[in-house]
Amino acid sequence: MCSICGCGEHDTLEHDDHHHDHPHDRAPLHAHAAGMPATRMVQIEQDIMAKNQRYADANRRFFASQNLFVVNLVSSPGSGKTSLLVKTVEALKSEMRVAVIEGDQQTGLDAARIQATGVPAWQINTGKGCHLDAHAVGHAMEHLPEIQNGVLFIENVGNLVCPAGFDLGEAHKVVVLSTTEGEDKPLKYPDMFHAADLMILNKSDLLAYVDFSVAKAEAYAQQVHPGITSFTLSARSGDGLEAWYGWLRAGVARVTMQR
């Protein structure tokens, strides 16, 4: 069973036919027996994501103080996030400060791939967890050298569901969708495509061999997130990367000019 989602042993998503046998009609949980203290109502009005949000707000203030443009990369596993990052940090490291936080359930393989380019990287292993949270990202910053006036990439755990709900303090979520996946993913995972401000369609070099329609993927993304920006590129061949670099340069320019 997933420690975060609680999915697995009891599949909460398949409740329609109620095959499992625990009763859903509950007995009254507090009988007002004589001598029991009277209960009272307390108004709370608090978001249940408040704790993560407090950490995310603190991260955002810290990033602003360092003039860091922070991008939270999200996708399903295997979309090519790390390959795209390796290519990107190679291209940009001579013109701006770059650092990377990697999130995976296990291994330090991705951080090692980034470190091989000479750019500082820190790996967060979530264990059984399915997403990064703002608290873990705050602590990861303690392990990175101080960097200013540049870009911090946070590569989230490969998962199109849970990371959508967790603000890490980033400027933007960027969702990566590859041409070897279904073009209908924006409709199947609308929360993520709604949360992201930029969609990258990766592996464009394979378009000739797969039945992926860029036009349809873009139309579906517009349906769940009107106005979302989209770039089609190939981290492998390098096609289309300039538009992505331009978007990053503009973001870094914005945060450094605000000072």
């Binding site: 399915c130 959508a164 709900g165």
Partner: peptide, 13 residues
């Protein structure tokens, strides 16, 4: 998604 994490946050609140 992640309802267990949300419930942990809720109970802590």
């Amino acid at each position: 998604m992640h309802e267990l994490a949300l419930c942990e946050g809720l109970v802590q609140s």
